[in-house]
Simulated assay, not measured.
Amino acid sequence: MTVPRSSAPTVLVVMGVSGSGKSTVAALLAERLGWTFADGDDFHTPESIARMRDGHPLDDAARQPWLGRIRAWIDARIAARENAVVACSALKRAYRRALIGDPQRVRIVFLEGSRTVIQDRIRARHGHFMPASLLDSQFAALEPPGPEEDPITVGIEEGPDAIVAAVATRLDIPAGDICA
């Protein structure tokens, strides 16, 4: 089912497991579109970051306040009539339902990739709180978006610029609304 889009503000939630490139792709996409960007990692509490850094995944109860803060940010963008992009793992359908609210105004972009590619990326990055040891828990929690969620699904094998270009071509945004 395709959700009809309106000319109202749009918020894109760029989702996927840790290491899929959410933050990089979302920031580049926001820049290309001239939209506001937020990284879901910035909505975590210091306690949650410490827990993940120590190799412990967050449970559903620990994620709820985090999702609530991201949802409040999304709602504020919509209320301000401001287009935006947020990077957020949003691994489970229940998490996405908590984030989306109005499916005419919020759309999922799913960065899909193999465990091997993502594991290599996690091992190569430095300075991020999420250790490679939590990758199994990320894949265990992942419920890929189904057709009823009308996601834009993009493979991550190519570089960030190619991924952003693939997402941009799938959006129903007039060409004049995209920054060069």
Rank of each mutant, 00 (worst) to 15 (best):
T2K: 14
V3G: 02
S7M: 10
L12C: 03
V13W: 01
M15K: 07
G19A: 06
S20E: 04
T24N: 06
L28D: 15
R32T: 13
G34P: 02
H44R: 01
E47H: 12
I49Y: 07
M52R: 01
R53E: 14
H56W: 11
P57M: 00
P65K: 03
L67T: 05
G68F: 09
R69E: 13
I74K: 06
A76H: 10
A80H: 04
R81D: 15
E82H: 12
A94V: 14
R96K: 05
G101N: 03
P103E: 07
R105Q: 14
V106T: 09
R107D: 00
R107T: 01
I108D: 06
V109P: 07
V117H: 11
Q119H: 15
I122V: 15
R123M: 11
A132C: 07
F139T: 05
A141V: 08
P145H: 09
P145Q: 07
P145L: 07
P147F: 11
E148R: 12
E149T: 05
E149I: 02
D150V: 01
P151L: 06
P151R: 06
I152Y: 09
I152A: 07
T153M: 08
V154Q: 04
G155W: 09
I156E: 00
A162C: 09
A162S: 13
V164P: 00
V164L: 02
V164F: 10
A166T: 12
V167W: 00
A168W: 10
A168M: 13
A175G: 08
A180D: 14
A180T: 15
